[in-house]
């Protein structure tokens, strides 16, 4: 019995180390790539290409940068950008909710996705599901928000 438990513990240790070994191979280059991207301001430059996103997601132009940063690099990094922009009075409450809804569902898309792909998950399913659901939830919020805003004024809201 005691020996069995020791063996089980050892097996657990080995599978843990084995999993970590695969993760190291992915994480190290990724982290360097992210730092290089931050340094070169790549996120800011990419943001210009995503201008159309503001219209599509019904968010203001200023909300695109925290969104792109959060999706690419991570939630806390994106939040930092939100807090800074909000302090400068550039983001409305509606914008902040919209960004948070999107980022809650979809952030750190490179790191999170790759860590789980290493575990054997399907890359396309992971990427597609999170992006599609984040867009859908943000659009739904935009819809609901518009309806909530209009309701007191007009009774002719259509579904």
């Amino acid at each position: 019995m005691g020996i069995d438990l020791f063996e089980a513990a050892w097996d657990g240790f080995v599978s843990g180390v084995h999993g970590l070994k695969n993760i190291v191979i992915i994480v190290m280059p990724l982290m360097v790539a992210i730092e290089l991207a931050k340094d070169k301001g790549i996120m800011e430059r990419i943001t210009a290409k995503f201008d159309a996103l503001a219209g599509f997601l019904k968010i203001s132009q200023k909300a695109v940068l925290p969104l792109v940063v959060g999706v690419g690099i991570g939630f806390s990094y994106g939040s930092g950008v939100i807090i800074q922009s909000a302090r400068e009075g550039e983001l409305t409450l509606k914008d902040r909710y919209a960004i948070n809804i999107f980022l809650s569902i979809c952030h750190s898309i490179f790191e999170d996705t790759l860590l789980l792909v290493v575990m054997g998950a399907s890359l396309s399913w992971l990427l597609a599901s999170r992006l599609i659901l984040a867009v859908a939830a943000t659009l739904l919020y935009g819809r609901l928000f518009v309806r909530l805003e209009k309701e007191p004024h007009s009774s002719t809201t259509t579904l």
Partner: peptide, 14 residues
């Protein structure tokens, strides 16, 4: 430099 920072972040994550 970003390389050092990246490797440090990588080691931290692991």
């Amino acid at each position: 430099n970003p390389w050092v920072r990246g490797l440090k972040n990588g080691i931290n994550t692991v």
